[in-house]
Design a protein around this nucleic acid. Structure first.
Lengths: 226, 226
DNA sequence: CGCAATTCTGAAGATTTCCTGAAGAATAGG
DNA sequence: CCTATTCTTCAGGAAATCTTCAGAATTGCG
């Protein structure tokens, strides 16, 4: 696992690095907030965990984490801090942190908490999604191609398709779709969804594919691929 | 979000429940280890978080959590305990816990930690139920496969099958089935149930299997596996 | 064996859910 | 302010599903 360590105390950093490497992790290191931010941003795809001090030169850990979270980067974060007051710990978690460890701590506890954070499955969203053999969908530029040719979708249609594609072969309830793609609340009814589904079918699934947009009666819809 | 609270101190439990509900969560409650285990197992699909005391009557929190993890259920767990020694906290995390909060704690911190645990993407456990050797049923996809091939069930059929599968090798009374799968009240009669059972048998149990849908005369039905 | 209670089965009617086309409402861009 | 695009609503009809019913089959028991 890849861990980014942001800590200005070089001595502590060294020993943390040693211990983590012993556990089989690879460790990258930044000694201040701005360097940390840069590394985190650029390497986010490869990182499995960030361990960050709260008090750092140039940019403190909490602001750093807030910034990152606003960029929709979800790498788990373990904060280290000598500030152990409840309100300080709460603030750490509210800033987007996943755990908060008070200095001084034992290496055993650190490793246990690191394990707990690494154990949970990551939700890494790939950029290009393939549906069957000839439908491709790029989340980044909001575009869809069918057999190599671009198909124009309305924003709403794209949101719905993207949601279904990200959950392909799972049944998505009408509630999920309404909540995630519309501003509606979960349990509200709107025929609108069905109209968009119809249009998606017309634009993308009119012919036989290795992929189809199925309705699951009484529940919702499912993007089925082979 | 759905939270299961396992705590034997009724006073503490009550106030936790109140605070969590204020935050918009729904709370289920168990006051001892064995009840907790049962609730957790059976409702795992709907639970988003478990908050559990460590010292509990009948079955302590750590063993409880280990058992659940061995069953491949990944619901996040927050342990509460008065035992705040490092080695005890480490043990909690090693047992499959995700966080460990030491009593007494402030409600603020509890809520922050609950938020942190709920915020992270859910473990997508393919909640697959196996019946015999060749029937598999996925609650998430609302789908059933027989010898690898998908079998299409109606919503009602699926609900009934799922209920029986989740209680396999137990006799389910007609009352249970009516109450859980239909909108009927417990003691109402409806031939409808039998019709659905018939259709399930036709679709899934027509051949000899390691699994059969038996009728228990005068009581109800049983999903029997070997 | 014969009877009564219970369950099974097929088909038809009732109900729910979904699809579709078109028209009205909202929104953005010029 | 006008236009083009997109979104939502509505209503009719189609399709899938659920329930009911009546007769047949099965089971348990004296």
């Amino acid at each position: 696992m890849n861990i980014l360590l942001i800590e200005d105390n070089r001595t502590l950093a060294k020993s943390l690095e040693r211990v983590l490497k012993q556990e089989g992790h690879t460790v990258e290191y930044a000694w201040n907030g701005t360097d940390g931010l840069h590394l985190w941003r650029t390497r986010a795809d490869h990182l499995d965990l960030v361990i960050s001090d709260v008090m750092l030169p140039y940019l403190d850990g909490l602001s750093l984490c807030k910034t990152i979270r606003e960029e929709n980067i979800q790498t788990p974060v373990l904060f280290l801090s000598a500030l152990g007051e409840t309100h300080q710990r709460v603030e750490g978690l509210r800033s987007g942190g996943d755990d908060y460890l008070i200095k001084p701590f034992s290496m055993d506890e650190l490793l246990a908490r690191v394990d707990a954070l690494l154990r949970r499955p990551r939700a890494r969203v790939p950029d290009l999604l393939a549906l069957g053999t000839d439908i491709t969908l790029s989340l980044e530029n909001n575009s869809v191609t069918l057999a190599g040719k671009e198909v124009l979708l309305t924003p709403m249609e794209f949101r719905i398709l993207a949601y279904l594609a990200q959950h392909k072969n799972m049944t998505c309830t009408r509630g999920q779709l309404l909540e995630n793609c519309f501003e509606h609340s979960k349990d509200q009814w709107s025929n609108s969804l069905e109209v968009h589904i119809k249009n998606l079918r017309r634009k993308l699934f009119s012919k036989q594919h290795a992929c189809s947009l199925q309705t699951v009666r009484g529940i919702g819809y499912k993007m089925a691929t082979e």
